[in-house]
């Protein structure tokens, strides 16, 4: 078992609009993969398809050697790009909800992360400023011992301190068995934490490579490579 996630020929259209066009991806355990591209490239659709919230028109997704089924969700921790918690919840309700719903939820870890991220469990989710909301969502996501973490724009539109804390949470949540798929258009901010990158535009995978390869073989930063790839579309 040396791939965590395999995606073969994923294709999806919404109405007449092609959202994903024959996307192939592979993520190895222990690695952080960045899924990058402009807004509307199809990043969210890929994550939602892995979560089985969106159903593909064609293609297969294999998680740890097994085609997706509803049990796969047990192994995936998903952080959507907006607040998906019930509006009436306080942070502590959300923690209790996650604890009840996910067997891999670690209450101790959630306490540690609340301390580290300076989250007030009494706060109402609805009134949290965006930096605090992202901190809360990342706390909930990484309190789970999942095999795959799907993060949709976890550092979008928030202050540098929250951003740094969130990246640190991601890094310290990693081990040899789990992997992260991080969708973002903020290439600069995640440059140093990525192992692999996938560039996506208009539903097509334009390029994929390891971050170290980009620096070592191509002598470029991920940002420079990104600009080069997207310039030549």
């Amino acid at each position: 078992m040396n791939t965590n996630l395999n995606i073969f020929g994923l294709t999806k259209s919404f109405g007449s609009q092609l959202a994903l066009d024959d996307v192939h991806m592979e993520i190895q355990p222990g690695r952080i993969a960045g899924l990058m591209g402009p807004n509307g490239a199809g990043k969210t659709t890929i994550l939602k398809t892995i979560m089985q919230i969106v159903k593909p028109d064609a293609g297969n997704i294999i998680l740890n050697g097994i085609p997706l089924n509803h049990n796969s969700r047990q192994e995936i921790a998903y952080l959507p790009d907006h607040n998906h918690l019930f509006k009436w919840m306080r942070v502590r309700d959300a923690i209790a909800y996650y604890r009840d719903m996910f067997v891999d939820f670690d209450s101790e870890k959630s306490k540690e992360l609340c301390d580290f991220l300076k989250i007030d469990p009494q706060a109402h989710v609805r009134t949290l400023p965006s930096g605090m909301l992202e901190r809360t969502l990342i706390m909930l996501t990484f309190s789970r011992k999942a095999k795959l973490y799907l993060l949709d724009e976890p550092i979008g539109g928030i202050d540098p301190l929250a951003r740094q804390k969130i990246l640190q949470t991601i890094l310290s949540g990693m081990n040899e068995d789990n992997s992260v798929l991080l969708a973002t258009h903020l290439v600069n901010e995640v440059e140093t934490i990525l192992d692999d990158v996938f560039f996506l535009d208009k539903g097509c995978l334009l390029a994929s490579d390891s971050a170290e390869n980009i620096r070592e073989q191509r002598g470029k930063s991920i940002m420079e490579y990104y600009l080069e790839v997207f310039e030549n579309v």
Partner: peptide, 15 residues
């Protein structure tokens, strides 16, 4: 129709 649908549909529970 609520935003929380993404949470509910990502639960490891059979439909």
């Amino acid at each position: 129709e609520n935003d929380s649908v993404e949470l509910e549909l990502s639960l490891p529970v059979s439909s």
